[in-house]
Structure formats: C-alpha cells, structure tokens
Design a protein around this nucleic acid. Structure first.
Lengths: 350, 350
DNA sequence: ATTCTCGTTTCATAGTTATTAGGTCGTCAA
DNA sequence: TTGACGACCTAATAACTATGAAACGAGAAT
C-alpha cells in the first residue's frame, strides 16, 4: 500500500506553506485567494489526500443512512411496472421508519468491480445492497468484495448472500387448484424471461402441480420467449393459437402465464381475435402486482405479494448488523403466496 | 463553536491509550478486542469526533454523492409506469457519469418539514433535490429550508426553484396538426389528473390549437376525471360514448387523451365494444413513454421525451454549484416535443 | 514453577496538522 | 514620501496522530 500523502508534500509541490494548506483544506476562505484555494484542493484531491484520525468506513454497526439497490441486467429504470417497483415500495415503507433511504446504484450492466469501488469508495458505507433479480455469479462476487451485507430478491445466490423470494410452488398450486376445480383439464403455458431460473421454476412447478392431479402438460402448448412484457404475452398467445390450428377438440382451455404483463398482452390478443375470456378460455397469471387489478377485467392470479417481499428484505437488512459479522448466517426467506380470483377465469365451456 | 474532541480525550474517557484509539479509528481489527473496537467507535461517534486534515465538504465544486428525489402526493413508488420512471432513467444516465447516485426520499405525503430535517440532518449534503410533479407551495417552501438546490420537473414553482418540463403546446399542436391533416374535425378529450395544472395546460392547449384551425372543441365531448391510469381511460371512453348517444352524425372521430395509459384504457374499451381503431376512431395521446410502444398497436402520440427531461435536469444540477450560491439565477427549461405516428390514427371515415 | 505463545495494549517518538502572531507587499490618501 | 490599511501568506510551535517495538497477562505446554 502506497504511503499516504501529507499536507507538507502538497505545500512543497505548490511552493506554499503547510499552514496555508491546512487552512484551505479546513474550509477557511477569508483572507485566502481564490487561486490558492482552488490549486490546493485540486492537488489534494488529485493526489488522493485523505484526512487523518478516522476512517468512517470502518465504523462498526453504525446504521448507515442508505441502502443501495442494484438491478439485474436487462432491466432499466424506465421499465419498472413489474414486480420490482412493488419491492421498492416495500423496502421504502420499512426503511423510512429508520430514516434510511434507498439509493439506486445501477443495473448489472452499468456496473463492474471498478465502478462499484469508485461509487462506494468515498461515501459513507451502505447499510446493505439489495439485488433485484438474477445476476451472474461473477457480478455477485464483485459485490461481495465490497464487504457490505447483500440481499438478493427474486433470486438466490446460495452461499453468497441472503435472499427473499416468492413461493412459486404454492402460487402455481393455487392457480391450478382453482382452474381444475372449474373443470379445466387442458392447460397451456405462456412463458417469458425464459433464460432466467425463475421461468424454469414456474414452469416446473406447473408441470408438477398438474402431474399430481394426473394431468399432463402437452409440450405443444408450452410457449416460451425471451422477454416477459405485454407484447410477448400477445405474441405467445398468437403462437399458441397457431399451434392449436384448426383442431379445437384438444385445444387448451386454461392459459397460465408467466406474469401479469404477459397475461394482459394475451388478453388483448384474445379481444382482437374475438376469443372470449373467461367464457372460452380461462386466463391466470403468476403475479401479484398492480397490473392484475389496474383495469377490468381483474386477472385471476396468485403469487407472493412483492411489497411484502420488499418489507421482509428491509427488516432483514435492519437486523443484519446487530449480530452481524461474526455469525455469518445466511437467511433465505420464502414469502407465502396469495391467490386472487379475478374475472378472467370461469368454468370450462360445454 | 465548540472545540473539537481529540483522540486523547476519547482515550482518557475510556481509560485506554491514545494509540489504541488511533488504531481502532483507522479500522485496524487484528489484535484488537471487539469490546475495545466497539466502545471506542461508540464514544468517538457519540462525541462527534471528526478526522483532521481535510473537510471534504469545503472542496470547491465538490459534487456531493447523492441527488434526492421527491414525488408529488398521490404517487407511490409502485405505480411508476408513467413518465417519472423515464425521468429517473434520464437522471441516472447523466448522474452516473459523475458517480452521483439518486436516492429516493419519499413522497409529498410521507414528508413534512421535521422529517426532512431528520432525514438530511446527519448525512452528507445532497447535490440537489428533484421534485417530480406538482406539489403544494408550502411543501416546496419546506424543501427550500434545507438550503439545497431544488429542481421541479413536470411542474414549476415560479421564483422558488429551477424547473424542467415538457412543451405541452407544441405536443398538442403536433397531434392536432396530424389529425386535422387526416381530415378530422370533431375532437374529444379524455382527461385525467384533472386537479393538476398539467391537465389544464393540455386541455387549454388543445382548445387553442383547434381554435387556430377554426375548430371548436365541444364541451360535451370533454371528459375529465380525477386520476389518469388505464382504468380511467376506459371509463372516460365509456362516458364519452354515453354522451354521444345514438346520434353518430356529430360524434367525434378523433380522441385525444391526457396520457398514454389512458389511451390504452380507451383502446381496450374500443376493442371490447367493437369500435375499430383507427378505422372508425383515431386515438392520440400526449405522451412519450414506453406505454406508447409497449405493445401493438403503437399509439400515435407526441410529447417531450421524459428521459430527456431527466437528463437536462441532471445537467442542471451538476452545473448548479460551479457558479452556485452567488448568482442565484433560476432556470426554467422547456424541452421540445417529439411526434410519433402510431397505428391508432388514420384518415377520417367516410 | 517456568517458559512459551498469543492476543491485546501501551510507550515513545516520529510524523502531521492546527493556530496565532506577525510579515510582506500592493494601494490609497494625506 | 509616508503611513495606514487590507489582502494574503508564513514561521514557529503547540496540539494531535501514527506506528514499530516493547510490555503485559492469561493460558497452554514443558
């Protein structure tokens, strides 16, 4: 580690006295020329001068004023209508009671190890960082280098940090239960974000929940695409109907979609094609965000309440420093799923 | 001003040596008992010990590490699909280059003067605060007490702070121009957030733009409601069609909506009722957010790009301290509007 | 009991920073 | 020319902090 620079060195470099440097760096302005003031600060900062006596970064268990937020790659701040904005709302609700505020650090793509250090090096330490969604392991390790409590929501990084997530199995089970009770036996899957583990979890859960009830999910009616927005829901429904073709006897009567946004897209597709929901097709989504109820018809849906996910995450972060460092026990919370019957599901036709 | 406390005083208070205090406050952990470490930090912080050599606050043109964000009442973080998330994206884009991050302070409702002081009293000062939307003057004054640069987007508080906003007149003019060119002469307004000045500005702009072209906006076809979300668009369209009644001869052929969300709601209403867009009705929105293009049909729309609004706001904040305090000149920026022809507008029927 | 070891703390002092009284150098008016 | 003044800066030194070597004390090993 290079030796720290001293005020005297700064003074020598500029040909002034150490006294002057001291005065300037402590903010004295009267009786000091603007030129000196600026030059001295400039040299001080450029040479990485740091104050003596205390490095606030090392303060233990001091509640910091900030919690950082990092998003998985592929998301930008301006596409938030999904789950994560609810998570943030939950975080905010709890954290504001401790006068902690949340700060957005960036997305997986915007950040690398170097940038993270730059970003966090100089300011007061964060209470923790919440990672929204699934990020690469290398990225997670880079975050780990920061020696800050990490917490991953809607994804887990086993062994690397805490996590809070939804109960996918239960959500899908609630949906299937409801649809089977209505008489549905032929299901379709409208899948999005298919590269994410989350998609696989939901689809697998669907297969298993159907299997338990002696129903097989026909691969022909499993449509999955890369993203998970409204348009993708529309496209999936389109593709699904193409696969169904003219033989309607075996066509699925219940569509389960990866999330609420896609369900809305699929619903719009149905409206355009004159497919009546819920009379002909029942539509349900694994979701519990605002999109389910933002407009009629409300979506039949089940998932863990993302606001609760955020609230639990916040509680975990607030607690984390009481015991902290020693007992590095990682917590994985699974939030219970809630089911809501909407206007997009009904008894099977005929 | 009270005299600053020294390491030796901390040491005396705890009955340890100054050396130990020095080691601890510089973050040394090996060979130091946890008890000492915590006690020393605790006393140091409690007594307001500050490091020597430099007070970064006084650095000239020192950028703070944070910009605060405050939302108008009536919005929560989890209902962001609208304009402001784009604004935040723009802020982020520019600010991250200066290693500044944004931090959410709360909504107009969550905050009062006292809370603001609590929130900001102890941490390093903010580079500035961005106020999203229209807030009460008393709230704005409370913010003013913080002695931080303020900037209002999508609203202006004349004489109190900077502002950056869209060019409503131009947006509406572009829309009207486009629709009139297509032959439309009978217009309807689907208005939302009617209590906000923004709504009035847009509606007035529409009246004026039509007047210039010798078209009168029939008050019968001006529908305005309190909120401005998808459902409200649906409801407005519903109400509008009720007012049209059976006499279709004078029915409006062009619907202009307050924003994109409401246009989507109105579009869904049209789909349900079998009203064909754009064949029977042309639909346009004052908007430039993702909602315009998130799914087909793209909306015909015009407005200032909210991301640009955010970017300009960020630039203003970064600049604001170079000259800063002395010349307290308030800036009001108006961002040019962009028009985009979508799939929801077409030549008038007949 | 003695010696060793290890974790913790202090001593002693070199290295840095704060502060006050005073110096230098233009400028301006008598 | 002179001296008063103000803006800017430094010398000198008091005050504070950092750090390697040494000390201390509680077990563990001999």
């Amino acid at each position: 580690m290079a030796k720290r620079i001293s005020q005297s060195q700064i003074a020598r470099e500029l040909g002034v006295s150490q006294s002057l440097v001291s005065l300037v760096l402590n903010g004295r302005r009267d009786g000091i020329s603007d030129k000196s003031y600026k030059e001295i600060w400039q040299v001080a900062v450029a040479n990485g001068y740091v104050p003596r006596g205390m490095q606030p970064i090392h303060a233990p268990g001091s509640r910091s004023n900030y919690v950082g937020i990092v998003q998985r790659g592929g998301l930008k701040i301006d596409q938030p209508s999904n789950t994560f904005s609810h998570v943030q709302q939950g975080l905010f609700k709890v954290l504001q009671q401790s006068r902690i505020s949340t700060t957005f650090l960036g997305g997986e793509r915007d950040l690398n190890e170097e940038k993270l250090f730059e970003l966090l090096g100089q300011r007061d330490p964060l209470q923790g960082i919440v990672i929204l969604g699934e990020v690469s392991e290398s990225f997670m390790r880079a975050l780990g280098e920061l020696r800050v409590t990490l917490l991953n929501v809607y994804a887990s990084a086993p062994g690397l940090c805490h996590s809070v997530g939804p109960n996918e199995k239960q959500s899908v089970d609630q949906i299937v239960d409801h649809l089977v009770e209505l008489g549905h036996e032929r299901f379709a899957w409208l899948g999005g974000n298919c590269k994410l583990g989350r998609h696989q979890m939901r689809l697998n859960a669907l297969r298993e929940c159907l299997a338990v009830r002696d129903i097989k999910l026909d691969d022909k009616f499993v449509v999955s695409v890369e993203k998970g927005d409204r348009q993708e829901g529309f496209d999936c429904a389109d593709e699904l109907m193409k696969r169904v073709g003219d033989d309607h006897s075996q066509a699925p009567t219940a569509w389960v979609s990866y999330n609420g946004l896609m369900a809305r897209g699929a619903h719009q597709f149905a409206l355009l094609r004159g497919i009546r929901i819920p009379e002909e097709i029942s539509l349900a989504a694994v979701d519990r965000t605002r999109v389910c109820t933002e407009i009629h018809p409300n979506l039949t849906s089940a998932s863990s309440n993302p606001e609760l996910v955020g609230m639990e995450a916040a509680k975990l972060l607030c607690k984390s420093d009481d015991e902290s460092d020693k007992n590095r026990i990682l917590v994985d919370l699974v939030i219970a799923s809630e089911f809501s019957e909407g206007e997009t599901s009904g008894p099977v036709a005929g």
